[in-house]
């Protein structure tokens, strides 16, 4: 079987992807590209269609229309071939709760077609990645939430996948474990694994993603390296003005009249791209612009 690869090697590319559930347009014309060896972050509010997109990439949801190519395979027709070289960490834990950590890995090593002679080593390495070597024979229900999450990630790595799909990989983990996971994901990327990751933690996207695609209502609103997105939408500096609600409204009006974009953050109004504005803007605290400002501006959503 000969296979022609696109000129610019894409681990994954999606064009004009659409999927509706009844009247809900979960994915509405999404374009997405993950170049080989890079990490792309999908950032979007709840219900933006991130998980639905992930499921279409494994052939577990059929698109209504659009093109999907994963590792050079056309989906959904060749999704099985693509899945053989892909590791998936779902948003919702689907470990086998009645089995031990080790048995969970043993079964998946088989399902991922790890050759029989290498299976034990793959399982041992998986337990190490999950830091569960000492708890290998503990039943999953006896593991903590963080341990389960780590096991879920180790399960996706058993066969040395070329592409990783991570749907909110660090949700519910404490900061220390999250940092470790970031180091691991970054390490995999450095070694050449392509990664598509959704997250609600802006910091996670900033730290890990080479490029970020911001999605809202099933569409890509903008994409680019985090720093570029920040420069494009939020400038260098943000001026944060605090005050009672009435005052905030006033500030918002003034800033917009002067041609600036703003975002609310509960107790304050943030004026984006405020560098060099001087006293054209109300006084406030100045800070560096962040990806979070871009996210809120583009999706109209507040970050938790």
């Amino acid at each position: 079987m000969t296979r022609t690869l696109p000129c610019v090697a894409s681990a994954l590319s999606v064009t004009a992807l659409r999927k509706s559930f009844g009247s809900v347009h979960a994915v509405a014309g999404l374009d997405l590209d993950v170049p080989e060896g890079t990490c792309v972050g999908l950032l979007g509010p709840n219900g933006a269609g991130k998980s639905t997109t992930m499921r279409m990439l494994t052939g577990q949801t059929r698109p209504d229309s659009g093109e999907i190519s994963v590792l050079g395979f056309r989906l959904p027709r060749e999704s099985k071939q693509a899945r053989a070289q892909m590791g998936v960490v779902p948003q919702l834990d689907n470990l086998d709760t009645t089995l031990s950590a080790r048995d969970n890995l043993r079964i998946f090593a088989r399902l991922y077609r790890v050759p029989a002679a290498e299976r034990d080593a793959a399982v041992a390495r998986g337990l190490e990645i999950a830091r569960l070597t000492a708890r290998a024979d503990a039943v999953v229900t006896a593991l903590s939430g963080g341990m389960r999450r780590r096991l879920l990630i180790a399960r996706a790595l058993l066969h040395g996948p070329r592409l990783l799909l991570l749907d909110e990989p660090t949700v519910g983990l404490d900061p220390q474990v999250r940092q470790e996971l970031w180091a691991m994901i970054d390490g995999l990327r450095t070694e050449g694994t392509s990664i598509l990751m959704t997250t609600h933690y802006i910091e996670e996207a900033e730290r890990l993603a080479d490029t970020v695609t911001i999605v809202a209502a099933g569409e890509a609103v903008d994409e680019g390296p985090p720093a570029e997105l920040v420069a494009r939408h939020a400038g260098r500096e943000v001026r944060e003005v605090y005050g009672p609600p009435a005052r905030l409204e006033e500030v918002e009006g003034a800033a917009r009249a002067a041609g600036f974009s703003t975002r609310r953050t509960g107790t304050s109004v943030a004026i984006l791209g405020a560098e060099g504005a001087g006293d054209r803007l109300p006084e406030g605290e100045t800070r560096a612009s962040r990806l979070e400002d871009v996210f809120v501006k583009l999706t109209g959503e507040e970050v938790a």
Partner: peptide
Amino acid sequence: MATPSEPARRGDEPPG
């Protein structure tokens, strides 16, 4: 968690 320098998968990875 295995850090990147640990033998996470490269080297003895199944399909080589």
